[in-house]
């Protein structure tokens, strides 16, 4: 059987570890074996789901501070239409990096559809490319890449956003294409305040839960994005916009209770 060298390779490892080939697989993946960590996860999940609006706003403040050193813009807005207005304003101000025409690439995502940004963009003569949800053919796919590559803004949502570092967590899914947050010169993410969590400990606890509840959750992969693309490869001088987006904006919809 052709197993691409697996059997021999694994046997070599077993020999090196001096273990009997028939030893039972230890509890490497089973969470039930570690009571302490289960207790801890229950506490963390409780904390997240019972978090008050005011402490969520505190997290937002922490995120705004964390965003500064990585050149990331975190902007609280009250409602989704407010976010749409802000994004359109941004689209009018900024100039395209490649070519003269302005076009925006968007995820096909409930939050973005609810924002209803399409009509306003159309009025301003700004083109739009949507991630196609139907099974894309080869030519369709190439067209999508080509058009995204010349888009100057890419609009996505996110699954979670981590306050401690300003990190966006994006699970890949049909309609939520990873190039929308990658090829355009400016990446804009729209999220709700409830999606902001404190730190990576909370993130991985949530991901563990997702893994149990909906195993298909991260099957297609996942991307963490912390600020714009950057490099310090020339004499250790920081430059933003090496290959990915040169600017990143996160609009956080806080609901009407936000004091500012």
């Amino acid at each position: 059987m052709n197993d691409n060298g697996q059997t021999k390779f694994i046997n070599n490892i077993r020999k090196a570890l001096c273990v009997d080939g028939k030893r039972a697989c230890p509890d490497l993946f089973c969470r039930q074996s570690d009571e302490e960590s289960i207790e801890e996860s229950v506490l963390i999940l409780d904390r997240i789901s019972n978090r008050q609006h005011s402490s969520r706003l505190q997290l937002l403040e922490i995120m705004i501070d964390a965003a500064k050193p990585v050149n990331l813009n975190v902007i609280p807005v009250k409602t989704l239409p407010d976010a749409a207005q802000e994004i359109v304003k941004l689209a009018c101000e900024k100039q395209p990096e490649w070519g003269d025409e302005k076009s925006v690439a968007l995820w096909k995502h409930p939050l973005i559809e609810e924002m209803n940004i399409g009509e306003i963009l159309r009025k301003r003569n700004i083109g739009m490319i949507f991630s196609n949800q139907t099974d894309a053919g080869k030519t369709e796919r190439e067209r999508f890449i080509k058009e995204s590559a010349v888009s100057f803004i890419g609009i996505t949502s996110a699954d979670y956003c981590i306050a401690e570092t300003g990190t966006l967590v994006l699970k890949t899914a049909p309609g939520n294409e990873r190039i929308v947050s990658l090829l355009p010169s400016i990446h804009v993410a729209v999220i709700k305040l409830e999606q902001v969590i404190a730190d990576f400990k909370e993130l991985y606890t949530l991901l563990d839960k997702d893994l149990k509840d909906s195993p298909e959750g991260i099957e297609n992969g996942m991307t963490f994005i912390t600020g714009p693309s950057k490099t310090a490869d020339i004499e250790a001088t920081m430059v933003h916009g090496a290959h990915g987006p040169r600017e990143v904006y996160i609009y956080v919809v806080t609901g009407s209770l936000f004091p500012g």
Binding site: A66, R141, T172, E177, R178, F224, T226
Partner: peptide, 24 residues
């Protein structure tokens, strides 16, 4: 690696572009 709290990009990749996905 770079005295950062978190690197700019971390990607999880588990296989080729799945059905229903346009790019990958």
């Amino acid at each position: 690696a770079a005295a950062q709290k978190m690197a700019g990009y971390v990607s999880y990749i588990g296989g080729p572009c799945p059905a229903g996905q346009a790019v990958g």
